[in-house]
Computed example of a mutant assay.
Amino acid sequence: MYAIIATGGKQYKVSEGDVISIEKLGAEEGEKVTFDQVLAVSNDGLKVGSPTVDGASVEASVVRNGRARKVIVYKFKRKTGYHKKNGHRQSFTQVKIDKING
């Protein structure tokens, strides 16, 4: 059994027991979260919503909050002496899928 959920502007295919990293949520470690935007559920047959499946939800628990590896952004223009170095670390929340209600 799997489901396709939408969170943080992205879509994820999840099954029970999966641990996924998603865009940062405002939840602490150990809290339960519910995803209501379920685009499709496959139990015996595939149920596709338009745009979401009515009455379907996915329950998950927050494993940890963290930040990804640093991405270096380097801007450079030749012959002018212009260079600028910048870094970015994206925040994420790691969740474990507990139950798919379809």
Rank of each mutant, 00 (worst) to 15 (best):
R89V: 03
K47Y: 00
R89Q: 06
H88Q: 05
E59Y: 00
V48W: 05
I72C: 04
E28V: 11
E29A: 14
V63S: 03
K32W: 00
A56S: 09
G30T: 11
E59N: 14
E23L: 08
T52M: 10
K10L: 12
R69I: 06
Q90W: 01
Q90G: 01
S57Y: 09
K99Q: 13
G102E: 08
R64W: 00
D54P: 10
E31N: 12
K77N: 13
G55Q: 07
E23K: 11
G45I: 01
G55L: 03
Q11G: 12
A60G: 04
K99M: 02
H83L: 02
Y82L: 02
S15K: 12
R69F: 07
G49Y: 01
V14C: 03
K32P: 10
R67G: 13
G102Y: 04
G45T: 14
T7E: 08
F35Q: 07
E28C: 07
V48D: 11
I4A: 09
V48H: 05
A27G: 07
F35E: 03
N101K: 14
A68K: 15
G66M: 08
G55F: 05
K13T: 15
K24A: 13
M1D: 14
G81W: 02
I5D: 10
V58T: 09
R67F: 04
R78C: 08
E59Q: 12
V41T: 11
F35L: 12
V58P: 04
E28W: 00
N65T: 14
D18S: 10
A68S: 15
Y82A: 10
M1Y: 07
Q94W: 00
I4H: 02
L39P: 05
A60F: 00
L46H: 06
Y82C: 10
E23Y: 03
I22A: 01
A27W: 00
R78A: 14
S15Y: 04
V48L: 12
V63Q: 05
F35T: 05
N86M: 14
N43A: 14
